[in-house]
Write a protein that binds this DNA or RNA. Structure first.
Lengths: 275, 275
DNA sequence: CTCCACCCTCCCTCGGGGGGAGAGTCCACG
DNA sequence: CGTGGACTCTCCCCCCGAGGGAGGGTGGAG
């Protein structure tokens, strides 16, 4: 039996950290003296401590580490680890995108943006909608769009989506993706939905979505400069997207933001607008 | 002028976050109503907010972000950003190493370790020593070893080092790297030092240092099984290392841990042992 | 028996974010 | 001009995973 200090020396985990891992149930000492509270570890626990050490180096949350080292089945263990490695990979992709975008932000080429004010009538479309967390947006979008494509017989024009501003404010919000169709079906999650008539400030973003914030910002500047304010879920239309070409630089995304004139706002509710 | 909510919609930064960035001095509103405390932003601040957004996605600490967006000189800015990208790169290397090591830990081949108990006499060597933070160890080691190599005329045997356990407990500790030499010089940071006589439990680690913890653990297990305890800074000797071959799998690192018999400890101070 | 390294628990701090309470403000509409 | 409701303010609590340090109890060798 090893006192905590000795165990610390063998595992290169600090005494403090070992105590935390005990409290968190990650690495329970082989024996705890009930009278004194002294923790005693066995040499067999060293390999476990090393696995925990590595997992923590990979920023696996303590709760997940507990799962992993606690699961008897090596298959479970492997799949839990694989899950986290997948998350790391996704994180890495995001980091790469942020680096690329940052470079472009810091080496700015002031490409002026064409913004158009467009009155859009109400239209009934085939839609899938749900409340979605920001982290899940990409996955949800892919699933919803696939379902739409599967059931909409004669789509018209490019697909689009409506994005609740709360998505960015609260980390989750209402999403709606749609296709225009002559006869919107009602199958599975797909159902007919009516998008309200709005006045949109419309700009077209060119290229991959890494930099789409820039276009949002320029659109915002334009809106302000024209004495307008925004008023509801933003609309995106995927004129050219990954479904059309793998060449991201050719993508075209139309961003339309509902606006109203400051001083004479839209009569409809501007914040809890149904999407 | 934009109220915080409107600015939030244009930048996709939450209202809370914008307030924090104001408090932290990252993004000070163009105007603050002194009477009401209301924050008002100008459209010109949108690009700045976007840069901040990207930097934060890259986990640049708020203080560094303040530096970056606050620096007028674009060269300063670029170098600060480059610094952080370098840190991200180093982080990535560490992650890769941890992943590789984890895989090996989870697919264990119980290669039994040969451990030898060795009595080592005191010896006088050419040494460089200092208190070093854990994060700086690699850099410090490289510099110290280069300096040693430059001034030690006739080195004998392989280079080695002594590592204070406090390094892992407190994140910093005393390090000493040495070369044996017929006549230890006293030049620059290099000076003669006498390593005390100790009894060592010695094992040889094979391969890159990613997995060296495993050998430490096995050595620890052996120490415990033989009714011993460890007693001072660990010694490593680089029998075959990066200086010898780029093939990491051929590296050989001797790990020697000072031990004493439990029940009759070493007479010298076992924790604050001078290295 | 004494000494002192060791171990215990408890609470504070930090960074970057979120939740929510309670109060004040803005402004379009009636 | 008053009112209501969306908006904003500040303030305090929580989260995670780590560290600092106080204050007090234990183990074991001399």
């Amino acid at each position: 039996m090893l006192a905590i200090g000795e165990f610390s020396r063998f595992t290169h985990l600090s005494v403090r950290t070992l105590r935390r891992y005990h409290d968190a149930g990650l690495l329970v000492p082989a024996e705890v003296d009930t009278a004194t509270g002294y923790r005693y570890y066995s040499a067999e626990q060293i390999p476990t401590a090393q696995v925990i050490h590595r997992l923590r180096e990979l920023d696996v949350p303590l709760a997940d580490v507990r799962e992993i080292v606690g699961s008897a089945d090596p298959d479970d263990r492997a799949s839990l680890v694989a899950d986290h490695l997948g998350r790391l990979e996704a994180e890495l992709d995001r980091t790469r995108a942020a680096v690329a975008s940052l470079r472009r932000l810091l080496a700015p080429e002031p490409a002026s943006l064409d913004v158009e004010l467009r009155v859009v009538p109400a239209m009934t479309v085939a839609a899938v909608e749900d409340d979605v967390a920001l982290d899940d947006v990409l996955g949800w979008y892919a699933g919803a769009m696939a379902e739409l494509d599967a059931v909409v017989a004669e789509p018209v024009g490019a697909p689009g989506g409506l994005y609740d501003n709360a998505l960015f404010e609260d980390g989750r919000g209402h999403l709606l993706v749609y296709r225009q169709a002559t006869e919107p079906p009602h199958v599975g999650r797909v159902r007919p939905a009516t998008l309200p008539a709005v006045e949109l400030a419309v700009a077209v973003h060119r290229g991959a979505h890494d930099d789409i914030e820039v276009t949002y910002g320029e659109l915002g500047t334009w809106v302000v400069d024209n004495a307008l304010a925004v008023a509801g879920p933003v609309r995106e239309v995927y004129l050219v997207g990954p479904r059309d070409t793998a060449d991201a630089s050719a993508w075209r995304t139309e961003i339309g933001w509902p606006v109203f004139r400051v001083g004479s706002p839209d009569p409809t509710d501007r914040t809890s607008h149904p999407v």
